[in-house]
């Protein structure tokens, strides 16, 4: 997995609360090969039903081209477990997501794909979004080692992250390999379970 250390990049503001994974990538694109899903990002928000780009949607605005960060509203990416919601954003260059809160499954899926979800105070997230709207194309700086996010206004905030997740991201740790290193513990658990729950 690609390591995540720092990111200093254009950020896109998304103001809708509860923006669900069906909006990030509609279900009809899920059964297709990953490379063909790239175009499906925010599909029905980006395009009208007759396939014309909606100029008012952020990712269609020239100032936000090359964005690598999303600054969203509460409960971002709630809904389904589709990991495509993470991979379609990663494949479009978006690797960090800042919001007051996230859908739990999406939050976990980020770490499996070298992406960083950051929870920040709702007031501060609103401030950063307002700054991005005021000057589209502004950048946000993220430093994982020091756990800081610096907004377009130059104000830096510390964010919390589990040290386990932080280490895995900083080093690009492969979780399956990590877990296979605990083979003895897993085997011991299974032996105990065979005794205690023999009906399984």
């Amino acid at each position: 997995m690609e390591a995540f250390t720092t990111l200093d990049a254009v950020a896109i503001p998304i103001d809708q609360p509860n923006l669900d994974t069906d909006q990030i990538i509609p279900a009809r694109f899920l059964g297709k090969p990953r490379p063909t899903q790239v175009e499906a990002l925010f599909h029905d928000l980006r395009y009208t039903p007759d396939k014309k780009p909606r100029p008012e949607f952020v990712t269609n605005m020239p100032a936000y081209q090359g964005a690598r960060i999303v600054v969203a509203e509460r409960n971002f990416a709630c809904g389904s477990s589709r990991e495509n919601a993470v991979t379609v954003m990663v494949d479009n260059g978006l690797r960090a997501f800042i919001a007051p809160s996230f859908g739990d499954i999406f939050f976990n899926n980020c770490f499996q794909n070298g992406a960083l979800p950051i929870r920040l105070d709702a007031k501060r997230v609103a401030e950063i979004r307002a700054a991005l709207h005021a000057k589209p194309g502004s950048t946000v700086k993220i430093d994982l080692a020091s756990q800081t996010v610096t907004g377009p206004d130059g104000k830096a905030d510390r964010f919390e992250i589990d040290s386990f997740r932080k280490d895995c991201l900083l080093k690009g740790v492969d979780e399956v390999n990590l877990t296979l290193g605990y083979e003895k513990d897993i085997a011991a658990f299974e032996a105990k379970q065979r005794q205690e729950m023999s009906w399984l």
């Binding site: 976990n108 499996q112 979780e175 877990t179 605990y182």
Partner: peptide
Amino acid sequence: FGIGSSEVAHVMATECLWQR
């Protein structure tokens, strides 16, 4: 609980998941 496809592969490989 529901999981994404990477964690599906993780459970297939290890029968375990990392959880907080």
